[in-house]
Design a protein around this nucleic acid. Structure first.
Lengths: 225, 225
DNA sequence: CTATTATTCAATAAATAAATTGAATAATTA
DNA sequence: TAATTATTCAATTTATTTATTGAATAATAG
């Protein structure tokens, strides 16, 4: 070893790599993405990712070893949550980097949305402005608990599962903008398809709640029951 | 497969994981850190990390596959550089996250600096303010090429290797603040030790050139020769 | 053309990580 | 207390990653 500082540097970068290793698995990234939305039990996470519970538990423990998530035992359940909001911001930064550096991401997305109406990349800035002004009906199509945990001020909660039962509550003259968890969540895609099939003027906005938060949109949190 | 969108999500998160895998090795993180300072040849990078050239080349190719770095052939040499300044910012974000989440980082650093004078965590804000005001002599102890590629406005270039020959150029009445590549670069540590041994009032500032840039310090770039 | 030099490639062995399976643990309910 | 449920543990197989080595390639200089 020529350089006497090698051991120090090795030790430091090995620590940095703990974070890197934690985010080097697609499954763990998806877990982080969901945990950005709020705390979840192992069971719920496993189901969301179509993993066995044991496998999900293992991945979660790796995230915990890297101190990116924390746990709390509540009765029979173990609730996992992000250790810090900074972890969510880091995940978002990584997503943005992947989107900007890897053309494949855009390609996979385009391929998935191909042929579906209302999903074409709209003029995002203009749409965001309309949302800001309240000039459109903003629909939060995530499950009610997630809406309660935090939603865009002025947005209406209408979980995808209940959409069919509430068509009559929605305006036919005004544009409807649906959002969900983010660009890779399909809830808003399905919602817009259903709405369009019924003749509504609906469009999807890719941004998820964390993106809106990062952009400084006012977020409303409902009281816990 | 219960969920028909699984394939889409798997494809997306697999792309994200390409970035994660690229930054999951300590060696590749160190390579990125150095490349944040500027372009380098394979040979130089290999030497800096005490790696074989073949091994360094392999790591660099992995970074290139993840589109984090780019290459350019110049004569016999292949020059690697970051593909985008955003990659440097991402690396810094990862470093900050590791520092905040992993207590081990601070511990390793403390252990390394133990017993050395001038390295105690000084009042950073106050010191930065002095640097900003030009109330202290600011020493850039990196190699001259790196100084030329970008340095804090007002800083004097005095590479560690030439320090001994230029003691007489330095003020004995004013405080000297040395900086280098960042908190895990040892150049400024060695410089401060040498200066103190000669009776100068020298302190180290942990921040590296990329940190100063991120903090909005004015950076001066010398004309290429 | 030959020699030199920087880099990459290819093959291998060793280490590490991933998913699967079934058993073990811990908290709760009947 | 026994049964149930959510989670973790441990063992295994399979796949991936890492470092090492020596050969191959490509650009340049003699």
């Amino acid at each position: 070893m020529k350089n006497p500082n090698r051991a120090f540097k090795d030790a430091i970068y090995e620590q940095f790599a703990r974070i890197g290793k934690a985010v080097s698995s697609p499954k763990r990234l998806e877990l982080l993405d969901i945990l950005c939305q709020g705390p979840r039990t192992v069971e719920v996470l496993a189901k969301e990712l179509s993993l066995t519970v044991a496998n999900a538990s293992q991945h979660l423990q790796i995230l915990r070893t890297a101190r990116l998530v924390e746990t709390e035992k509540e009765g029979l359940f173990v609730i996992y949550r992000l250790a810090d909001q900074a972890v969510c911001e880091f995940f978002l930064a990584m997503r943005v980097l992947a989107e900007s550096r890897l053309a494949e991401v855009e390609q996979i997305k385009r391929q998935f949305l191909e042929g579906r109406e209302g999903m074409e990349p709209v003029n995002r800035e203009a749409l965001l402005e309309l949302v800001r002004e309240g000039a459109v009906t903003v629909l939060d199509v995530r499950p009610a608990e997630e809406y309660n945990a935090g939603h865009i001020a002025g947005a209406i909660s209408l979980p995808l599962k209940e959409l069919e039962r509430h068509f009559s509550d929605l305006p036919r003259d005004q544009e409807i903008v649906a959002y969900c968890r983010g660009p890779y969540c399909v809830l808003s895609i399905q919602a817009v398809e259903m709405l369009r099939a019924k003749g509504f003027k609906a469009v999807r906005i890719e941004e998820g709640i964390q993106d809106f938060r990062a952009m400084g949109f006012p977020i409303v949190v409902n009281e816990e029951v």
